[in-house]
Write a protein that binds this DNA or RNA. Structure first.
Length: 622
DNA sequence: ACCAAGCAGATACTAAAT
DNA sequence: ATTTAGTATCTGCTTGGT
């Protein structure tokens, strides 16, 4: 669900509002926020280049270079600002320092140019994200970084083939790595690759990479380079000028490197396939079918229970990665068309029991006609749809429905097969329903609320615009589906549960638990959109909840210290639920479908991180 | 090889509100 | 004058069928 990504998202991280007041105890483990207002302004103008708009800090390294006056002839403090400026834009520290050095006399513009050129090839999310991650991963990243750069520098020194790709700014003495890696380098060169290509690939793939992996990386880099060279002028500078496919390729290779996997990308590695029919471990109407027995790895078993959700149709390999991170639990893929009148293909990774589930009652209408009965009268018999397609965040324009009306009016009572096909294609694409003679219309927000299982007017009023209402709803859970899975908690926690809800959105999980009549004792809800937090808060009040609701705004600022406080104060979380942003995964996105390492979808790693921290803290406690 | 169908979207723009 | 809401148009990868 539910992490609300909108044009206003960055505005939500607003330094002047009261938002920050909602966050208490930002402990020492959280990243120091050093993004300047300048950098923030650039990010909110949509001109940010890096894969994340992460808050970031300047390391000792950078500080040292600045104070030594190595980087530039100008004063240290202004350089420090400059470094922070570019770090805030998401470039890695190493690149920033390098670029500033290369542009000793240069202005901000030329430094940015250098960064753009370099980052197209050196677009390593591990570096961009390093401060985005909590301390566990941060540690890991720092180590990796040190390893790879040591090794890289030694090679460059020896081969003295330095161009803009060399980072010769610090001394190194690691001689034997050369011997160890001479062979692949010379192999690659004899294969016709340039020295820089070989070195760059070696750096990215790590010291033990196979030739196949290295060539894979070089081809990816060549694609990237070709793209930036030839299309720099025509294309808007959108995330380093790479196409989504190229970025994904680079990201995937980076991710593999991070996990120290060997060998070329093979088909067998991506084994998760979508089931047909997509009914997971079962749906209410087939409750007679007993679900299979499933064994969870020891690390996966609760407490706490966890429930993670995202779109089913992702780029290849994404669910394999998600599953690998979440203790190798296989995702349960379910299409909500088996629960309501609209399709919603989603994957759920959870460690909940899968027997003795029950649906919330009354069962929602399962067909379009039952869900929106007024459309029945105008529904032509050649429109054979029974279910709506996936409810999305965007809806058809008036102009489109007007074109459809005009096309139909020209035909009289019996439209030709061509017109029928045109109308049907558009209706399926935009989820249109019949509201009059020859008149189709997009769903109203309250119809979407109903289809998704929310109470009527859940998202209405209180300052939210119609557009944002569609957006918030489109990013949400289907309540009946999720409730069916969570229903097993009712017997386990008759006195209520403590929930950590990440990317809460408009509170799909909370509504599901409430409708299951599982008392909500303490809910810590993390949601970036203020409008969504308002919606959940007013739902909380309207439903006269007796428990405690704590709202935070950003998963990136939730640290171990805060979690420890929460766990101490109410004795641990029973359920950690959430669906991280899908917009870099879903097929609807043709612009930045970058995969799990994309700007927004990489927040998945925070779900994993936070789950891990909670598990650790609760382990110590017991 | 091909085609059809589907997808929690992004962006540039205008109109309206502040 | 600037921000926000609404509108129109843009786009590609994947799967499953033939």
């Amino acid at each position: 669900m539910d992490h609300h990504i909108s044009d206003g998202e960055n505005a939500d991280i607003d330094w002047n509002t009261d938002d920050e007041l909602e966050i208490q105890n930002i402990g020492p483990t959280s990243c120091t926020t050093l993004v300047t207002r300048d950098a923030q302004a650039i990010i909110s103008n949509g001109e940010n280049i890096g894969p994340t708009s992460c808050t970031t800090s300047v390391s000792m390294d950078a500080q040292a270079i600045i104070s030594n006056g190595e980087a530039s002839s100008s004063a240290g403090s202004s350089n420090s600002n400059l470094v922070q400026h570019f770090l805030g834009m998401g470039f890695s520290e190493r690149l920033v320092i390098q670029a500033i050095k290369e542009n000793v006399e240069g202005d901000t513009e030329s430094i940015l140019e250098t960064l753009l050129t370099h980052s197209a090839l050196d677009n390593s999310p591990e570096e961009h994200n390093s401060c985005d991650l909590s301390y566990h991963q941060q540690e890991q990243c720092v180590n990796n970084d040190e390893l790879s750069s040591d090794y890289d520098e030694s090679l460059l020194e020896e081969l003295s083939e330095s161009d803009s790709w060399s980072w010769s700014d610090s001394e190194t003495e690691n001689g034997d790595s050369l011997l160890k890696h001479e062979k692949p380098i010379s192999d690659l060169i004899s294969m016709g690759f340039t020295v820089e290509e070989a070195l760059s690939a070696m750096e990215r793939c790590g010291p033990d990479a196979s030739i196949a992996e290295l060539t894979d990386m070089i081809y990816a880099a060549q694609m990237a380079k070709a793209d930036t060279v030839f299309f720099e002028e025509e294309k808007p500078k959108n995330s380093c000028g790479l196409t989504a496919k190229q970025k994904r390729k680079l990201y995937a290779l980076e991710a593999r490197k991070k996990k120290k996997q060997k060998g070329p990308l093979t088909e067998e590695e991506e084994v998760i396939r979508l089931p047909n029919p997509m009914i997971g471990y079962g749906i209410p109407s087939e409750s007679s079918v007993t679900p299979p027995h499933r064994e969870l790895a020891a690390a996966a078993i609760g407490p706490p229970y966890f429930y993670y959700e995202n779109v089913a149709l992702t780029p290849k390999g994404v669910w394999d990665t998600i599953s690998r991170f979440l203790y190798d639990v296989q995702p349960e893929f379910v299409d909500s068309k088996y629960f309501c009148a609209a399709a919603r293909k989603r994957g759920y990774v959870h460690n909940l029991p899968i027997h003795n589930r029950f649906p919330i009652l009354p069962l929602p209408p399962r067909t379009i006609h039952d869900a929106i009965p007024l459309t029945k009268r105008w529904w032509p018999e050649w429109d054979t749809r029974v279910k709506l397609n996936c409810l999305q965040t965007v809806y058809a324009s008036a102009k489109l429905t007007d074109r459809i009306r005009k096309a139909l009016e020209k035909c009289g009572d019996y439209p030709s097969l061509e017109v029928q096909k045109y109308v049907m294609d558009q209706c399926r694409k935009w989820n249109l329903v019949w509201v009059g003679k020859n008149k189709v219309a997009p769903l109203e927000p309250d119809e979407v609320e109903m289809l998704l299982g929310f109470p009527q007017n859940h998202t209405r009023g209180g300052g939210i615009s119609r557009t944002d209402r569609y957006k918030s709803l489109g990013n949400s859970f289907q309540v009946d589906t999720v409730a069916y899975h969570l229903s097993v908690l009712k017997d386990l926690y008759p006195n209520g549960i403590n929930v950590l809800s990440l990317f809460s959105g408009i509170g799909g999980a909370e509504v599901a638990l409430h409708r299951l009549k599982i008392p909500l004792k303490n809910v810590v809800s993390v949601e970036i959109s203020e409008a969504n937090r308002d919606i959940v808060r007013s739902w909380w009040e309207q439903t006269r909840q007796t428990g405690n609701l704590v709202h935070l705004s950003d998963v990136r600022q939730l640290d171990g210290g805060q979690l420890e406080e929460f766990i101490k104060s109410f004795g641990g979380f029973d359920l950690i639920v959430g669906g991280s942003p899908c917009n870099n995964l879903t097929g609807s996105n043709r612009v930045s479908r970058d995969g799990l390492e994309g700007e927004h979808s990489s927040l998945f790693f925070h779900y994993f991180d936070i789950l891990n921290m909670v598990k650790d803290i609760m382990k110590v406690k017991n």
